[in-house]
Design a protein around this nucleic acid. Structure first.
Lengths: 113, 113
DNA sequence: TTCAATAGTTCATAAGTTCCGAACAAAGGA
DNA sequence: TCCTTTGTTCGGAACTTATGAACTATTGAA
């Protein structure tokens, strides 16, 4: 086994399909919402438990990979852990209003429970 | 075999996940864009060919089912064919700006080709 | 009323994707 | 060096999606 380098697409290669697919999963959407809300980068292991659900770490690792390769987050290895932050500013330039509308819709849906 | 009645969720049961999943497929996104643009209801068979691609009709039928059950379109049997229109107005009330931002993002992506 | 044509659905299965435990890698500290 | 922590990779099971063949349902013509 060998650990491959992290893949971050160039902003012009980011697709709507990729973004929608990544955020159509409730766990990934919840992770992204949390990363977007916090003002400092989050590490992966903070999400081993989310919304009263335990996520195995191999699954979590895949979720981060999908968010990263969709262009939604930027991940950086920092010693033994990983710092994740959103690419909202770049995304806002490429697809104005998209990420904001999705986050807003998720908030509306949460509130109606 | 038996043909089951069409399922249209109540607008309050429509989820962001469902919408994003439905529109994360390029064929479904293209179908939805076309239905949204036209000012009259479209029938399914108009999409047997889309973006230079031939879609088998069983596949097309599944795509319409997914769009319908995600709450994105309303389908009505009209004689031998089906009339499909979007539920944009209701969706705009439930998740303001969401559908518009997605359609806009798809347009931006199309233009950059 | 019977037949054929048209539009779309269902079913079975093949192909593809996702989930998750076990083994691994990489970095830091004792 | 060895242990701990954090995250990745691998492989198989579980789930989802795509598609051809067979079907239903409606219409119109003979």
């Amino acid at each position: 086994m060998q650990v491959r380098p992290l893949v971050h697409p160039k902003i012009e290669d980011v697709t709507v399909e990729g973004i929608l697919h990544a955020l159509s999963d409730p766990v990934r959407a919840a992770i992204f919402v949390e990363i977007a809300q916090g003002d400092c980068a989050k590490k992966c292991s903070e999400f081993l438990s989310i919304h009263e659900r335990q996520i195995p770490k191999s699954t979590l690792s895949q979720h981060f990979k999908i968010l990263r390769e969709a262009g939604l987050i930027h991940s950086e290895r920092n010693g033994v852990e990983m710092r994740n932050r959103t690419r909202c500013k770049e995304l806002q330039k490429r697809f104005p209003g998209l990420v904001k509308a999705i986050l807003n819709a998720h908030r509306i849906q949460q509130e109606g429970r």
